[in-house]
Design a protein around this nucleic acid. Sequence first.
DNA 1: CACGAGACCTGTTCGC
DNA 2: TGCGAACAGGTCTCGT
Length: 276
Amino acid sequence: MPELPEVETIARLLREGQGPIPAILERRILAVHLLWERTLQTPAPDEFRRRLQGEVFCAVNRRGKFLVLQLTQAVMLVHLRMSGDLFIEPGSATPAPHHRLYFELDEGLRLAFNDARKFGRVWLTEDAQTVLADLGPEPLDDSFTAMQLHQGLQARRRQLKPLLLDQTFLAGLGNIYTDEALHRAKLHPAMLSQNLNTEQATALWDSIRQVLREGIQRNGASIDWVYRGGEFQNHFQVYQRTGRPCPVCGATIQRMVIGQRGTHFCPSCQPLPEGR
DNA sequence: CACGAGACCTGTTCGC
DNA sequence: TGCGAACAGGTCTCGT
């Protein structure tokens, strides 16, 4: 499910709360319930429970698609993968069927990790860098420039779509926002990264940042039964719009598979150059 | 290095 | 109605 904007939205919710839902900051962990052991990447369940006993949340951040929950003595990292969600609920609520891990907190609250497909993972470590070390740049950071992107594209010879999904190349894009960014930049998803000129690389840089910012501003995208509250799904130009008209030119949106991922694009706005 | 296939999982939707 | 196939926001590992 979640890509950068959804993870950012969840991080903000945990950090600031919303309406009747309080923030997680300064809340203390009273008990740990691990219902699906493979959720835990590291350490072993016993050590995980022991080290979290009495811990207090002091900051919530995001790096790529990782949630970074800073505690007093350690840091907990959460990756939601395809169907994960992380939220505060009343400690009195009946745990939902897909809760894989939850924490009873003080003030009668609960932090729940819910994940139907069981792909999500959690780490507890002293040093977040051990988990985050291979991630590429943050696309919305001021330090990430169009020139940097262009140089990165030049250094590889890969199709744009799988390259943009590669988290070591750029951290945070997933299937939705990649398709939307390529459409906005008028670039074919199968175009080879080495063939982009300066204007095209700059357009891609701009589009990536615009699409991610708009996603965050709309609280992410909510599709199917997973994740609620976002509304970016109402503003897709190509994603999941196969067979419908392109909002820009009216041509019929097509779907193809690239790198085993469903890929949506407008054949008229995003032509594949000769020799790609 | 780049790419494709298969694995990990459950739930929904689509076609016959 | 039933049933299997295809598909889903992600990432890892293995073989070519």
